[in-house]
């Protein structure tokens, strides 16, 4: 996602790359993260933590292959929205026609609009759900507007749930839920084909067992 309308912020390091002639003296001092407790030489704060190159604005890891969930899950997701929206629509119509309560549209209208927008974005949102099995941890990402990227070491997994809703079952999909000792981890991987979900669970249980330490 690019923002051509957004002028480069003057205090960004990208600005230095864009206009290398402007402040060449600052270039060699671009940051190498040091966190060993030693005081760093005083340097302008704004030059630290800025992108070293023309970094993308979105959160993504370089050199990474994300595994996606099944595209069929879009249908499941859309059906969920569709059913909810249909129920609300019917209720609103009943209120309007039978009881002559016009105001109901003030409540139902925004709700339907939200459903519509969410439904329209569903393919995109579901494409954004991804996971990666690295050597020692599981990566998980989701979200377009609100992006989230989580890493869980395998040894931290306490249990792994497989849930299957009625619609998802009809499409042969399952949902995998990872539970750690922290309630905030919150990794739910929807829309995996059942065999893949079961394989993944067995694999994760095995690696979690081999790497388990204390809590």
């Amino acid at each position: 996602m690019t923002h051509p309308e957004q002028p480069p912020l003057p205090d960004d390091a990208t600005a230095l790359n864009t206009y290398p002639g402007a402040e060449p003296a600052l270039l060699p001092r671009l940051p190498e993260p040091q966190a060993d407790g030693q005081p760093q030489p005083a340097e302008p704060v704004e030059n630290r933590g800025g992108p070293a190159s023309d970094a993308p604005r979105r959160l993504d890891l370089p050199h990474s292959e994300w595994r996606r969930v099944s595209p069929k899950y879009v249908v499941v997701d859309l059906l969920g929205y569709g059913i909810t929206a249909a129920l609300v629509l019917i209720a609103a119509l009943v209120m309007h026609v039978a009881l002559d309560q016009r105001w109901i549209w003030w409540a139902a209208g925004p709700f339907l609009a939200v459903c519509l927008i969410s439904g329209a974005l569903a393919p995109r949102r579901i494409r954004s759900i991804g996971y990666q099995l690295r050597d020692d941890d599981l990566l998980f990402r989701r979200g377009i507007m609100w992006q989230r990227l989580v890493a869980v070491p395998y040894g931290r997994m306490q249990l792994i749930d497989i849930n299957r809703g009625p619609v998802a079952r009809a499409y042969g999909l399952a949902e995998l839920k990872f539970v750690t000792a922290s309630t905030a981890t919150g990794i739910v991987l929807p829309g995996l084909p059942v065999e893949e979900a079961e394989q993944l669970r067995d694999h994760l249980v095995a690696v979690a067992e081999s790497r388990r330490t204390g809590l």
């Binding site: 507007m145 990227l149 989580v150 750690t180 000792a181």
Partner: peptide, 8 residues
């Protein structure tokens, strides 16, 4: 337990 980064 885990680490997350997020962006709105």
């Amino acid at each position: 337990q885990s680490i997350a980064v997020s962006q709105g």
